[in-house]
Nucleic acid binder design. Structure first.
Lengths: 121, 121
DNA sequence: ATAACGTGAAACCAAAAGGTTTCACATGCC
DNA sequence: GGCATGTGAAACCTTTTGGTTTCACGTTAT
């Protein structure tokens, strides 16, 4: 099992607006809702207690993260899930897959025993 | 392919500190570094331009997210990657797997064509 | 013992986040 | 035309975030 490539910095820059968008529970819920079906701004906002402008701001951040697309329909603006960047985030996380099974046990063991008294410099 | 279960709210609560921890590029870099090998606070801080207390705060947030564990070794505190919650975040994202291939095309098509003029209420 | 090292923790600060209310404007329906 | 609806956007407020400097304390090495 070859070591997974370390994510590079510029790749991380690209992912920053994605992880930022995912950091808020309201935005995550919006994503789940839009996964079921596209919805206008008013429809999305109606599912939350907060004001519509607050929801609009969340939608803007989701758009900055490239997680949703917006299509005008008459006087409405329909928001659609755009899962591509979710996939990118998922792939970033998959970098750690190797450690879930492979290295985790080793590292844990290392710290809890030998590592604790070796490594003098 | 059965529809993936919708993530529940309390599950999302549990994931909040994880996504919060992942939202900062410094913290993501720390995770990558610790994936290579455990390190003391001083060692981690030495890799960044910012002050040590700033790094300590980031480590605290990573700990709150359950993404790292800390083991004292003499006067040092060794930080170790704890990937379990990364896996949880990864699984949350995998909820959208279905849409990457299955529904995406449909939704896109729906919005761009028929959806645009149907759905009167 | 004393000096150096690693850490903890407080006080402080500027900027960003997340929310509100308010008002203007465009579109669709009667 | 006129009114209701959907949206955009500004101004404002409070809390959180991410950083700093400073100092105290425990541990290790000489």
């Amino acid at each position: 099992m070859p070591a997974a490539a370390t994510p590079r910095k510029d790749e991380d820059d690209r992912l920053q607006p994605v992880f930022r968008a995912l950091a808020d529970p309201t935005r995550r819920r919006i994503l789940r809702d839009l996964a079921r079906e596209p919805a206008s701004i008013a429809e999305v906002a109606s599912r939350f207690e907060m004001s519509r402008p607050a929801v609009v701001k969340h939608l803007a951040i989701l758009r900055e993260g490239g997680l949703i697309a917006v299509a005008p329909r008459g006087r409405e603006r329909i928001n659609v899930l755009k899962p591509d960047n979710l996939k990118s985030a998922s792939q970033w996380l998959s970098f750690f897959d190797a450690f879930w099974d492979d290295k985790l046990a080793k590292l844990k063991h290392a710290v809890e025993t030998d590592y604790a008294r070796s490594k003098k410099r």
